[in-house]
Design a protein around this nucleic acid. Sequence first.
DNA 1: GTGAAAGCGCTAACAA
DNA 2: TTGTTAGCGCTTTCAC
Lengths: 338, 338
Amino acid sequence: MPVTISDIARQAGVSKSTVSRYLNRRYECMSAATREKIGEVIAAADYRPNALARSLKQKRTHTIAAVVANILNPFSTSMIRGIEDFCQQAGFNLILCNADDQPDKEKSYLEMLLAKQVDGLIINTAGQNKAMLQQIAAHIPVVLVDRRVPELSCDSVTLDNRKGVAMLVDHLVGLGRRDIALFTLPFDTVSPRLDRVTGYKAALERHGIPFRAELLLETDTSQVSVQAKLAKLLASGPRPDAVFGFNNLMTMAIIKAVRALKLSIPDDIAVIGFDDWEWASLLEPPVTVVDQPAYDMGSKAATLLIARIQGKRISKRPVVAVFEPKLIIRSSCGERAD
Amino acid sequence: MPVTISDIARQAGVSKSTVSRYLNRRYECMSAATREKIGEVIAAADYRPNALARSLKQKRTHTIAAVVANILNPFSTSMIRGIEDFCQQAGFNLILCNADDQPDKEKSYLEMLLAKQVDGLIINTAGQNKAMLQQIAAHIPVVLVDRRVPELSCDSVTLDNRKGVAMLVDHLVGLGRRDIALFTLPFDTVSPRLDRVTGYKAALERHGIPFRAELLLETDTSQVSVQAKLAKLLASGPRPDAVFGFNNLMTMAIIKAVRALKLSIPDDIAVIGFDDWEWASLLEPPVTVVDQPAYDMGSKAATLLIARIQGKRISKRPVVAVFEPKLIIRSSCGERAD
DNA sequence: GTGAAAGCGCTAACAA
DNA sequence: TTGTTAGCGCTTTCAC
C-alpha cells in the first residue's frame, strides 16, 4: 500500500489538484504556506509519484529506448554510453534492449517498447522489421544508428563506411599489399556491410587492382568459421597478403585464426580491422584499425531524437548525420607508428 | 490517436470487458464467434494494449531492472546477457541502467525505476545508497549481484572472492613468486574488493609470507595512475616479482604500464588478473586470470528475482548464491599452458 | 490560490 | 457467455 497523491493531499489538508501542481512545480499558483506544507508532508511520507499514472494521463513517458545489435560488441557499449549520457543530461529515461542481431528478438522488443509507450526510439536494426519500423516511425520519432534503411523516412546517424574502407585499402596498398582478403558477416541486408564491400571494390578499382571474388569471405565471427575459411583460402591459389576484418569481433577471430595457423603478422600477412577497441593496442603486434566515433554517434542520435520529441524545429525531412572514420595506424600492416 | 480497447470493443460489437478477457486469454468465457471476431478486429486495427494502463490497474509491470556498475566492463556485459536471456524466457521485460559506479547516478536511476513501478531489481551497487535500497527491498524483491551489503536483507549472488585470490596467490607462490603487488580500486566500501584484500593477506599468511603494506596499491584504473604507482614502487625498495589486478580494467592498465616501463612479462614481473575476458588469451604473453562465471551469475540473479516476484516458495530468509572462481593458467606468470 | 470532477486505457468484481 | 460499474493514481479544465 504505497502512498498516493490522495494521501498527501489529505495529510496536507489540501486537494489533489494542489498537490499535483506542486509536483509539477507550478508554485506560482500556490501560497508559500501550502507549498511548504506539501513539501514537508511529501518528505515525511517519502512519497514518490507513480510514473505510470502520470504517463497514462499525459501521454508522454519521458522515456526513450535504444535497441542495439550486440551488447557484447564494444562498438555498441560505447554508443550506448553516448546515448545514455545525453539522456541523463536531458532528463530522459533510457530503456536498453539487446536484440542480438536476431530479427525475432528485435521484434519482440519493439512490441514491448510500443506497449510501454516510449516517446522515441534509437535502433541499430537487423533490418528484417521494416514494416513494423515504418509504422512505429509514423507514431513516434525514430533514429537509425549505424545501419540505414532507405525505405524508412527517419533521421539516421551513420559512418562514411566507403571512405573508411578507402582509407584502409589505401594504407594497405601504400605498404605494397595487393591481395586483400575481406571477412564479412552476411552483407545483403545490412547497409554498413554492403557499403564496406562496395567501398572495397571501388578502392581496388581505383588502384587498378582487379577484384577477386574468392577473397571476399562471408562468415560468422566465430574462430572456427573464420579459421576454416582462411585455411582453405591459403591452400588454394595465390595467398592473400592482407586480411581485413569487418568489425572488431571479426578481427579478433581473424587474429586467433592467423595465430592458430602459425602465420606471422605482418610478415606473412597483414591484419587490419574496422572499429577500434580498448585493447587493440595491446596485442602483439598492435592492430591497425579504422575507428568509428561510436560514442559521438550515440550522442548525436540521442540529440536528434530528443529534439524531435520536444518538437524543436529541425528540418521536416529526415536528417542524415554522417560521421568520419579515422585510420589508426599501429603495426599489424608492417609499419610501426611509435 | 492510437486505437484503444474501446475502439476495438465498438468495432467488434462487444463490451470492453470482453475484449479485455480476450487480451488476457480468458477464452473459456467467450463464444468461439466473439473470440474470432475480436481477433479479426484487433489484427485489422493493429491494436496494441497500453501497458501503462494495464500496469496501473494490475499493480504489476512484468518488468525488472538491472543496475550495473559499468557497462564498459566485459564482466558487466556478460552478466547482463545472463540476466537478459532468463528474462526473455520468463516473459519479463528488462530495463538496463548503467550507474557508472557513481552513487548519485545510481540513486537517480533508482528513483526513476521506483517511479516506473518495476516489479524487482537486480543491482551491483556502488554501496552508498543503503538506506534507499533497504526501503526498496521492503517493497519489491531485490537481488544483489557481485557486491554484498550485509545490512540489507535480500538475496545475493556473489563469487567466492577469497577463494579466487587464494588460487591466484597459490599459483604465484608455486611458481616461486613471493612479492606480489596488488592493485585495487578503493576497497573500503565494496565487498568483493575487501574480500580480495582480506583473501590476499590470508593467503600470504598461509604461505608464511609477511604482508607488506607498500605492495597494496589503491588506485583508479587509468594507465597514468597505475603507471605512476608502479614506477614509484619499482624505484623504492625490494621490487615485486608479480602484480595482481583487481578486475580486467585494472589488469589492462597494469599491462600497459608494465610495457611502458619496459619490463618483460613474466621474466621481470608476473602479471595476473581477476576476471577473464575475450582477448586475454590474445595478448603476448597470454594473461593468466581468475575467472568469474559472470553469465551464470546474471542468470542466477534473474532466476532468484523472478521466483520471488512470482511468489514461488523459496526460503523466507535471504538466499546467498556463491559461485566458484576458476583459475585459467596461461603464461603471464611464467608457465605456458599449451 | 484552491477544489471538484472528469477522464487517461485498462481490469475486475458483480450482475444479468 | 457477456455487460455494467467502479476504480488504478495522476493531470487538467473549469469553477469558485
